[in-house]
Write a protein that binds this DNA or RNA. Structure first.
Lengths: 209, 209
DNA sequence: CTAGCCCTCCGTATTTATACTGACTGAAGA
DNA sequence: TCTTCAGTCAGTATAAATACGGAGGGCTAG
């Protein structure tokens, strides 16, 4: 079998260089490029489509998970492995939904990384049991989870979190205070909380603000 | 000059292995060990004191910055370079205060890493201009920054953020509602915010809750 | 021992938030 | 077309938060 062509996408140069130095020791792997952002990755893929992309989640501009979704549409034959330090169920779930073939935490070891690359290159999925557990845990939560907030609600949420009163927000958004009230109440229902304080806390933890 | 002895402390095995593969190419550097936690680092240092330690901030148990402080006391001649993805002023400031000789973001390149190691091994400090700027920005903030919250205030804050009302909190803490009120108001003053919503937001961002 | 902080508590008045119920429009999608 | 949903608005009533401006006891570090 020919070499597995790989692109490493991560905004941390030292990590990219480290991974490349690590994989360079293996003759069956061929690193054809590296990217510090989703856009750089897209440019590289336009020139030459790799077999496998190692993708970080946290990157400037477009994040890794969204980038997978976009790239999957264009190059369905290319496989993505998420390689991140985020061991959180929500990310795993989103990665799978967006079409990732593998998910590795950065504290995996070299052997596991290579095993994952080889498995994924053959069209198999690679999720070790730790990751699978995270996903299961998160799926269970989803049942009782919140709905998404609308754009307008996010706007109101933002202002509420900045300490504005209902009236101030109403004036600023050119709507009645009742409307702002309704938005706030609807958000509380969606996130299953009792009052504004808890709403802000939950929103902060969900990184909405 | 003899080889510079280095220990890499980072809880992400892949990152450690990557860095080691990268530095192994350089003959003047000698990686004498790797650690996945502060305790592992301490054990290694007890056996053989390196010239330079590359240290991540986020590690299980003791974090990297605290670990530097502890290790500095025991081995004053050993130099620490913080190597992290956190480009935040508060971390830089704390690193400096705890005695770090260098601070690098993980998106530095190989040359900068080696330059930093060599500089630090000679007893020089290595903080590039980007990092220095972060530190300056943070120091400026400190002047106008918040005071710390008392234990009791933290307790109240916790309950407020869980959606409890003043009266509920008062009952739970066996004090009057006025007292709870006062605590809340005092916290708002300390954090310079206008109301509870903003208080919760700020507290969440400061990772108090 | 004094200054400063923490924790506690009080009154009054005003402003806000919350609960409950309900309804209209327009846009997007099944 | 019919449904769904976001966004808008309403009334009434109660609960809660916020703005004022004090005050005393306890503990600690300079």
């Amino acid at each position: 079998m020919s070499k597995i062509k790989i692109i490493v996408a991560d905004d941390h140069q030292l990590f990219r260089e480290g991974i490349i130095a690590l994989l360079a020791k293996n003759d069956s792997l061929d690193i054809i490029g590296e990217a510090a952002s989703a856009n750089e990755l897209f440019e590289l893929m336009d020139k030459s489509v790799p077999h496998v992309v190692l993708m970080d989640i946290s990157m400037p501009e477009t994040n890794g998970l969204d980038a997978i979704k976009v790239a999957k549409d264009k190059y369905p034959e290319c496989k993505f492995i998420v390689l991140t330090m985020h061991a959180e169920g929500q990310y795993v779930v989103k990665a799978v939904r967006n079409g990732a073939f593998g998910y590795l935490i950065k504290n995996a070891d070299e052997n596991e990384l290579i095993a994952a690359i080889e498995a994924v290159a053959l069209g198999k999925k690679y999720f070790n049991s730790e990751i699978s557990q995270l996903m299961i845990g998160n799926m269970a939560l989803e049942g009782e989870s919140h709905k998404k907030l609308s754009d307008r609600e996010m706007e109101v949420l933002e202002l509420v979190s900045e300490g504005r009163t209902t009236k101030e927000i109403a004036d600023q958004l050119f709507v009645s205070a009742r409307t702002v009230d309704t938005h706030r109440v609807n958000m509380m229902k969606k996130l299953s909380v009792q009052n504004t304080a808890e709403l802000i806390k939950k929103a902060a933890h969900l990184k909405l603000i």
